[in-house]
Computed example of a mutant assay.
Amino acid sequence: MKLAQVALGVQDLGRATAFYTELLGHPPAGTFDPPGLVFFDLEGVRLLLEVGAPAALLYLQVDSVRTQIEELRRRGTPVIAEPHVIFRHADDSLGPAETDEWLAFVRDSEGNLLGFASHEPSE
């Protein structure tokens, strides 16, 4: 089984599209308005922005949580939880062995909580 799509509820489709276009570094793969659907391709998994969809908590894998959060902070994105290590990977069952799992959280343009994760060498 493969994850195909995640829907994210938004209030303002244009504002959310601009936020995610800048965050992801590429434009939507498809926009259908009406009925008010915007799709982004995340390496084969579709991110759907839709007015009225339920809330979702997305975790995006990045090279470095610390670098990503500093870039978002410069853009004025509200940081909810600063970068921090949540555990160390002893084996490769959930990530590369002998790395730390970093997390941080921000609010997107619509107030949704958005998590960032990275696997970085243990310090």
Rank of each mutant, 00 (worst) to 15 (best):
Gly111Cys: 10
Ala29Ile: 11
Ala117Lys: 14
Asp91Ile: 06
Leu58Ala: 01
Ala16Gln: 02
Asp63Leu: 07
Glu123Ile: 07
Ala117Leu: 14
Trp102His: 13
Asp63Cys: 05
Gly111Leu: 12
Ala56Pro: 00
Leu23Tyr: 03
Ser64Tyr: 03
Phe116His: 09
Gln5Trp: 11
Glu82Val: 05
Phe32Val: 12
Gly95Asp: 05
Ala117Glu: 15
Leu42Met: 06
Pro54Asp: 09
Thr77Pro: 12
Gly76Asn: 07
Ile80His: 10
Ala18Phe: 08
Leu13Glu: 07
Glu22Gln: 11
Pro28Leu: 01
Lys2Arg: 14
Asp33Pro: 15
Gln68Asp: 09
Pro96Glu: 01
Gly36Ile: 05
Pro35Arg: 03
Asn112Pro: 04
Glu71Cys: 10
Asp12Lys: 04
Val79Gln: 11
Thr21Val: 00
Ala4Cys: 12
Ala117Asp: 13
Ala104Cys: 04
Leu37Ile: 04
Leu57His: 13
Val106Gly: 02
Gly36Arg: 01
Glu123Gln: 15
Glu101Met: 14
Gly76Leu: 02
Pro34Gln: 11
Asn112Gly: 04
Gly115Pro: 14
Val10Ile: 08
Asp41Thr: 08
Val6Tyr: 05
Glu123Phe: 02
Gly25Cys: 04
Glu43Met: 10
Ala7Val: 02
Arg74Met: 07
Gly44Pro: 02
Ala55Trp: 04
Leu72Thr: 09
Asp33Thr: 14
Glu101Gly: 14
Gly30Cys: 09
Gly14Met: 05
Gly36Lys: 09
Arg73Trp: 00
Ala4Met: 15
Glu120Trp: 01
Thr31Val: 14
Arg66Gln: 12
Leu8Lys: 00
Met1His: 12
Gly115Cys: 10
Tyr20Ile: 01
Gln68Ile: 06
Glu82Gly: 11
Pro78Thr: 12
Ala7Lys: 10
Asp92Gln: 07
Thr67Met: 08
Val38Tyr: 00
Thr99His: 09
His26Ser: 09
Gly52Thr: 08
Ala7Gln: 06
Val79Asn: 06
Asp63Val: 09
Ser122Val: 15
Pro34Asp: 06
Pro83Ser: 11
Val10His: 05
His84Thr: 04
Phe40Cys: 02
Glu82Trp: 09
Glu82Ile: 07
His89Glu: 12
Val85Trp: 06
Lys2Gln: 12
